[in-house]
Amino acid sequence: MSVPEVKHLRVTNIDGVAMVDFVGSELMYASDLVQDVGAELTSLVKDQNHTKLLLNFRNVQYLSSMMLAQLAHLDREVKKAKGQLRICGLGPVLRDTFRISHFESLFAIYDDEAAALKGFH
């Protein structure tokens, strides 16, 4: 299986953790964008064998319910790979979105990168 082209993510490896920033995805609600981002995230686990992921949402203002479903799918893929998934950089609107949808209980959410990175070790 070929690795999809990464257009919406910037991935940096920090001590074995794939730190993911979202590029040009401030408003993740268009269905084709959400599907592309979801495929790129899943590829990190399935095709590139990253088992420790840190998703930084500092550049994202809004997520659709379809994007939340993509994140739930990613969480299942990471767990299948016996990996860990952490989230940081949620602004007030996204934090409310995660709280209202009860996703705060599904994900390990940290205020910033440094705290999230410590959560892996």
Results as ranks from 00 to 15, higher is better:
28 M>Q: 01
23 V>R: 10
115 A>W: 05
33 L>Q: 13
8 H>Q: 09
63 L>Y: 03
4 P>L: 02
93 V>S: 11
61 Q>D: 13
19 M>Q: 14
58 R>F: 10
64 S>K: 08
55 L>E: 09
107 F>N: 14
22 F>P: 00
45 V>C: 13
12 T>F: 03
76 R>N: 10
84 Q>W: 02
33 L>T: 08
54 L>K: 13
45 V>E: 01
41 L>Q: 02
117 L>D: 05
87 I>R: 03
17 V>H: 01
114 A>E: 15
63 L>F: 02
39 A>H: 07
25 S>M: 04
76 R>C: 03
66 M>C: 09
113 E>H: 15
5 E>G: 11
111 D>H: 13
93 V>M: 12
43 S>T: 06
53 L>S: 00
10 R>M: 06
2 S>E: 12
72 A>R: 03
56 N>F: 07
48 Q>Y: 03
76 R>T: 09
43 S>Q: 07
78 V>Y: 12
74 L>N: 10
16 G>R: 01
104 E>Q: 11
35 Q>K: 05
77 E>V: 04
101 S>D: 06
94 L>C: 08
71 L>S: 11
106 L>Q: 04
117 L>P: 12
62 Y>R: 14
6 V>C: 04
65 S>A: 04
83 G>V: 09
49 N>S: 02
77 E>R: 06
82 K>S: 11
49 N>W: 11
6 V>A: 00
56 N>H: 05
32 D>A: 06
61 Q>V: 11
52 K>C: 15
13 N>A: 03
75 D>Q: 13
60 V>D: 01
17 V>Y: 03
58 R>P: 00
12 T>Y: 05
5 E>T: 13
82 K>E: 01
106 L>N: 04
45 V>L: 10
99 R>V: 13
38 G>C: 01
83 G>M: 12
24 G>M: 07
79 K>T: 15
14 I>F: 03
63 L>I: 08
22 F>D: 08
40 E>V: 04
90 L>Y: 05
118 K>S: 12
24 G>S: 01
7 K>D: 01
53 L>V: 01
43 S>I: 00
81 A>D: 07
40 E>T: 13
112 D>N: 15
91 G>N: 02
112 D>I: 04
59 N>M: 10
89 G>M: 05
